[in-house]
């Protein structure tokens, strides 16, 4: 099936005090309708900026460029803001990390739900309202009709993320970008929201780009996974393959950090990847992970870092040869 979203060699650069911050450095991925791609990585690895770059919502001072950036056959790279705005909220929608601050506190939620639909479609106010009520019921907000007149502060955190989701679905988008949609919520609510997200994705055949730092979420939700480190995708492939045989030392390190009941003894220190993320201000050569990598060697400083294939569509960027399955293989 043809990809709905195709990204090749995407760069995002931000001017900062000491030079240029290369926040996203030549990443590429593709997403099919009805599939979920998880972009996973730690804070500051560029995953949120990637999402904003797709939606053309980057801060004004940030520069975006790409060899390819196409959505449903439309080249987004040179699309004027007017036409981009016509796509946003209509065919590509986005929900954000913090539902407490992502809704306008001075506007009734009904108005906020309806406005996207009325912006993109010729529908009557009554029809738009009916759609809002139906969607609110669908995302699990009881008594939806009565709640349209309320304000965001009258909803709990989980309910607000449900509102955000309903708002994003108003125009039946083809692509939903969810930037850490459950990070700000407590664990039981997280599970509910993720289940809901998976359900509506199946019902609507949505392509879902899910951004997270939580490998548990990746394991639950992803068809495909792309692991980001320091602005690059270091490993990508079908989720099952990546989890079964992680190849990049960073991916292996991430998976090792997850405590497992039974295997992690109480009282022993949890695993962590030593060191910190390198500064991406200025030019960078070689593998960005080498300073934290226990298997680093002189060749790691060379450009370009080779892209190797582990199996099928599972690939990674590292000088090391593919290792067999089993995460204990990593030192």
């Amino acid at each position: 099936m043809a990809a709905l979203l195709e990204v090749e060699d995407l760069h995002v650069r931000l001017p900062v005090a000491g030079g240029t911050l290369h926040a996203v450095r030549g990443i590429g991925f593709a997403l099919q309708p009805g599939r979920t791609l998880c972009l996973v990585g730690e804070s500051g690895c560029g995953k949120s900026l990637t999402a904003l770059a797709l939606m053309a919502l980057l801060p004004r001072r940030a520069a975006r460029d790409a060899a390819r950036l196409s959505f449903a056959g439309t080249d987004l790279r040179s699309l004027p803001e007017r036409r981009m705005a016509a796509l946003r909220g209509d065919r590509m929608a986005m929900i954000f990390q913090d539902p407490m601050t992502s809704l306008n506190p001075t506007m009734r939620v009904g108005t906020q739900l309806v406005e996207a639909l009325r912006r993109h479609r010729r529908v009557s106010a009554a029809a738009a309202r009916d759609r809002a009520v139906a969607l609110l019921e669908r995302v699990g907000i009881a008594g939806a009709a009565a709640r349209l007149g309320q304000y965001p502060h009258q909803f709990s955190g989980g309910q607000r993320q449900r509102l955000m989701l309903a708002m994003a679905l108003m125009c039946e988008p083809q692509l939903l970008v969810a930037d850490e949609p459950t990070t700000a919520l407590d664990v039981t609510i997280q599970a509910q929201i993720l289940r809901l997200l998976a359900e509506v994705q199946r019902e609507l055949g949505l392509a879902l780009l899910l951004i997270t730092h939580d490998l548990g979420i990746v394991a639950r939700m992803a068809d495909e996974v792309a692991v980001m480190y320091a602005g690059e995708i270091v490993e990508r492939g079908p989720a099952a393959a990546v989890f079964a045989a992680p190849q990049h030392p960073y991916t292996q390190g991430l998976l090792n950090c997850i405590p497992a009941p039974g295997r992690t003894l109480p009282g022993t220190p949890l695993a962590a990847i030593a060191g910190v993320v390198p500064s991406l201000v200025g030019d960078w050569r070689g593998c960005a992970f080498r300073a934290r990598c226990s298997r680093a060697r002189p060749a790691c400083a060379d450009d370009p870092v080779p892209t190797r294939t582990a199996a099928g569509r599972h690939s990674y960027r590292c000088v090391l040869s593919p290792a067999p399955a089993g995460r204990e293989a990593a030192p």
């Binding site: 919502l57 909220g89 306008n104």
Partner: peptide, 21 residues
């Protein structure tokens, strides 16, 4: 603010974002 980004993500026009939100 985050909710301005939300408004822009909905594809609202600039006057809508600035004056209404």
């Amino acid at each position: 603010a985050d909710f301005i980004r939300t408004a822009r993500a909905k594809g609202l026009s600039a006057p809508d974002v600035v004056l209404r939100h």
